[in-house]
């Protein structure tokens, strides 16, 4: 069912990862991604994996939810694996048939690529699972703050992002409802030729768009009623403040990145 989509869903909790400042988590995620692309060997991948595994364990978010979130990526993962297995030049030929060869180098490379994508996505999920959308956009706004000097509408951008994130579950629920209602009127999504299936989407998409516009309109009115005028002169109820925990997390993050860089310089 559509409800099972967990993309970007927040799991409330009180773990150390939950309590970190959103800015800390965002910056560490960026460091983590850089490190992931710098990792070239089993050793450095091991370091990264350890970092991720410990973070996930601390967060207390059930592993199942990560697996569920990764499901939609299955196609990309398989595709990447096949590309890497068959199109990597190598010397140690393992199997050869019909003009295609599988080399040891290809397998290793495919494994690394898969691990990289999986770890990339899992890391990002960890951020969205442990950070509420509001905290996330607050953090982003604060991190991008300096760009205001360049006249970039940072507050407006983060508000837009916040609203978009907020409405994902609402729209999923709405889609679910509309689908049930149209099914009750005899729409068949599961069978028929491609064109029929595409046409079966119209009764879903039209009401969905109309309701999205209606919601946007209502939200805009509600915001104006509360005198929302964008970021100028707006203060925050919850000020972001770094705590000891954040500095520790920064420390761990920087050490991990440095470790991977050092390992890389040794060719590991």
């Amino acid at each position: 069912m559509l409800k099972d989509i967990t993309l970007g869903q927040y799991f409330p909790g009180k773990s150390a990862i939950h309590r970190l400042d959103p800015r800390t988590k965002l910056v560490i995620l960026v460091l983590y991604i850089i490190a992931l692309f710098m990792a070239v060997s089993w050793v450095s991948y091991g370091v990264m994996f350890l970092f991720l595994a410990v973070s996930v364990a601390i967060s207390g978010v059930p592993l199942k939810s990560f697996v569920k979130g990764l499901k939609p990526l299955l196609f990309i993962l398989v595709f990447t694996a096949i590309l890497n297995i068959f199109f990597t030049a190598g010397e140690t030929v393992l199997v050869s048939f019909l003009g295609a060869t599988i080399t040891l180098e290809g397998l290793v490379r495919a494994f690394f690529m898969l691990t990289r994508i999986l770890m990339l996505v899992t890391g990002t999920f960890l951020l969205t699972y442990t950070t509420s959308p509001i905290a996330l956009t607050d953090g982003l706004e604060s991190l991008l703050g300096p760009l205001k000097k360049l006249r970039l509408p940072v507050h407006e951008l983060s508000m837009m992002m916040c609203i978009a994130l907020r409405f994902i579950p609402t729209l999923i629920e709405e889609t679910d409802k509309i689908m049930s209602a149209q099914k009750a009127r005899g729409v068949d999504f599961e069978s028929g030729k491609l064109m029929q299936r595409v046409r079966a989407l119209i009764p879903i998409l039209v009401p969905l768009f109309i309701s999205a516009f209606r919601r946007a309109d209502e939200l805009a009115t509600a915001m104006e009623c509360r005198c929302y005028q964008g970021g100028d002169g707006r203060t925050k109820m919850k000020l972001l403040r770094y705590k000891l925990l954040d500095f520790k997390a920064y420390g761990v993050g920087i050490i991990t990145l440095t470790a991977v860089l050092v390992l890389r310089s040794f060719g590991l």
Binding site: S180, A181, Q182, A184
Partner: peptide, 13 residues
């Protein structure tokens, strides 16, 4: 068995 959901007007298209 005909089913009319809550706020069925949102299914018009």
């Amino acid at each position: 068995v005909g089913l009319v959901f809550q706020y069925p007007e949102y299914q018009l298209f």
